[in-house]
Nucleic acid binder design. Structure first.
Lengths: 189, 189
DNA sequence: GGCGGCAATTGCCAAATGGCAAATAATGGT
DNA sequence: ACCATTATTTGCCATTTGGCAATTGCCGCC
């Protein structure tokens, strides 16, 4: 659980009492491979800090094909922020790609922490805007690159992740078909 | 200036005194076409509410080619949030694509508002996370669509904008070459 | 250990997009 | 209004990627 505190401290100061208060609210939660942490159409009532495993944020089109928008893995928060913040239905699914462990905070506990800890807001503002800005920059850049470049950047930027997620999910994240990704892999070997 | 208040009220409540305080801090600023509101490498010390004109957030590669990541136009805030928040160098340029007018707040005034107005933080947390989440969703979706679909979605989603920005900037936003966009336009007529 | 089902690879061909260069149109400055 | 410059369009062809189907590989289950 110390990892969570270390992560939070990157974004703002918390004294020992505050750290203990935070940890006292955290609840371990296991999400088995294939299960959802949050579902489209439902309100996301928990925010999770991933201690083990990989999630993907995804949606399904009318034909049932799933599209992976991005992956969330160890030492990152996972949540549909729009849904969690305003208690609105989620736009998409958060699915465990592997068996996952998270430290979960309910909306109520999160709000209480936000009332008890003056810097809480700031910390989450920083985390949210920093992470989203970076994801957005990364994703926009992908648009102007060819598929192989995108794949190589993925390998660099998320070392080890390519071996933890199915090729089909990675392909849809990269915006290409599984066949194309398979061919790109072959051409690199 | 009322537009700014109307915009803010979408994200949280502000009483009359607070509204007046906000407006008292706002400074009109004109940015002529081609000028920068914020530059890569420099600290973004102002946040602007666009009342007139179109900006693009962009960067340049080593060969000097400019890539447009997205456009910001009337009734939206424009800022490099990572730079403004933490006073770090910006990663990219904010360039006026047309002559622009903004209501600008300095970092100092913004901080003062944040100290005087209890809901200020919440409002900006909502705006930032909401806008970034949506942009990110929109951009990831573009990855899995073909160029013509992306262009048609752009026309739908940003009506009128295609006539206000040069084709070359729109092409790089869409992740295609100017020639390809020109051909797509032709094929639609 | 064998079977069934899903995931990944591969071949073949079609469609989409890029690269380059030339032609044309639009724009800004004087 | 004219010129110079830049933006856009277009043609031609190369490259990339997709679609589909068949094959192979992998993994869990009995």
């Amino acid at each position: 659980m110390q990892e969570l505190i270390t992560y939070l401290l990157q974004f703002g100061y918390l004294d020992v009492t505050q750290r203990e208060l935070i940890l006292s609210k955290a609840r371990w939660k296991a999400i088995p491979k294939g299960a959802y942490f949050s579902e489209a159409g439902k309100i996301s009532r928990e925010i999770g800090y991933v201690t083990d495993g990989v999630f993907r944020i995804c949606y399904y089109d009318k034909t049932g094909d799933g599209f992976t928008r991005y992956f969330v893995y160890e030492n990152r928060f996972v949540v549909d922020m729009n849904s969690f913040r305003d208690e609105l239905p989620s736009a998409e699914y958060i699915e465990a790609v592997t068996d996952c462990q998270v430290l979960a905070f309910s909306k109520e506990d999160f709000t209480e922490l936000s009332n008890s800890i003056p810097g809480w807001h700031d910390i989450f503002f920083k985390i949210t805007s920093y992470v989203l800005e970076n994801k957005l920059r990364y994703t926009s850049n992908m648009l102007v690159q060819d598929a192989q470049t995108r794949y190589l950047h993925f390998l660099e930027h998320y070392p080890g992740l390519s071996n933890r997620v199915p090729l089909s999910m990675l392909a849809s994240y990269l915006g290409i078909t599984p066949s194309s990704l398979s061919r790109i892999r072959k051409s690199i070997r």
